[in-house]
Amino acid sequence: MRSIPVPTGSRSGSTTSAVAPAAGAPRPGPAAAVRAVGVHKRFRTRAGVVTALQDVHLEVAAGEFVSLIGPSGCGKSTLLRLVADLEEPTSGELSVFGKAPRVAREAQDYGIAFQQAGLLPWRSVRGNVELPLELHGVGRRERAGRARELLALVGLSDFADHTPAQLSGGMQQRVAIARALAERPSLLLMDEPFGALDEMTRERMQTELVRICAESGAAVVFVTHSIPEAVFLSDRVVVMSPRPGRISAVVPIRLPGTGERTEGLREDAAFFAAVTAVREALHGGAAGTPAVAAPETAAGAPRGVDLR
């Protein structure tokens, strides 16, 4: 079917600019889910100083889905860990919903799901999902109710009393995602959560994630190595390059029709065009490829592939 590419609208809040290169006078209006201004991160190791991130500017609007993609070692995980306050930036400003990352962490503004499911083997599936609620003193009754809801959401209702060791890798991953959603966070941080899954499970999980995000309205920062995955899920794909790790391009994804992310999208021409655009941004790097022809630009949209 031929359709005019239309901005994804509802979820994306796509009027916010991709990047804020100028130094940061606080922007008026509702606080962005994530706002990074001139963030640097250096690690001191025995072998010397590693610059994991250099001059990163990124803004993720509330409810927006942003993927980070780039070769291994370009600092994707590091960026996510900075947002989660698991590391501190060497310099630069970072805020989560207008708050310092530490404050946001203590206020439980975000949920995390990493490549390793990181389940506690001595707890049942239900016990694992309830963990965040338990840690924050939610009552038994309420915990049980919420766990039931979440397990239904990720399709594991029948496995509530199993232990993690009795589940497949994909099921464990779904438990971890349910756990990340337990406190209805307005921001989800996900580091290659589907990395260990087979292609079929992976596509199903992607569809589920789209549904979950639509229902919860959460903003997502999603690290992945898969271009189709990034394109399928995201409002914007942030392309990073290594040594030193920095953002080399930001590709807005505009979907055909109503902008719904359904299985049909995977076979849509616009989807393939977006995949190509991201691939070229990834391989071309920042150097001298000013006009990667993205379908959006062809349709006369103001912003195409935003190369920096």
Binding site: D85, L86, R105, I112, Q116, G118, P132, L135
Partner: peptide, 17 residues
């Protein structure tokens, strides 16, 4: 594992918890 410890840190769980 580091992942488990960080999970607790991300939940703002203190040392005692």
């Amino acid at each position: 594992t580091a992942a488990q410890v960080e999970l607790f840190r991300a939940q703002a769980a203190g040392w005692g918890r």
